[in-house]
Amino acid sequence: MYLAKIYVSHKKSILDPQGEAIKSALHRLNYNDVNSITQGKYFITKLDSQSKSDADQTVRSICKDLLVNQNMETYQYELKEV
């Protein structure tokens, strides 16, 4: 079995309204050293794939089909055998 941890976040070029709101809340709490913050999504999935390369392909495919809106989001992932 394989374990994938997938991180989805706003593309850097696109304003992240939630991240901006969190940043200004933190500044109101006097965390003035917070320069930027981005809110994203984190998915953990277990895969019954036959090989690591199959699992890798599935992860890329589910990101493209559903988990990520590639117009405005970007993603990275970690994959390991468990």
Binding site: I14, L15, P17, Q18, E20, N69, N71, M72
Partner: peptide, 10 residues
């Protein structure tokens, strides 16, 4: 084409 995302003022 495009995407609808959170309003800028959330």
């Amino acid at each position: 084409p495009g995407t609808l995302q959170h309003n800028t003022n959330i």
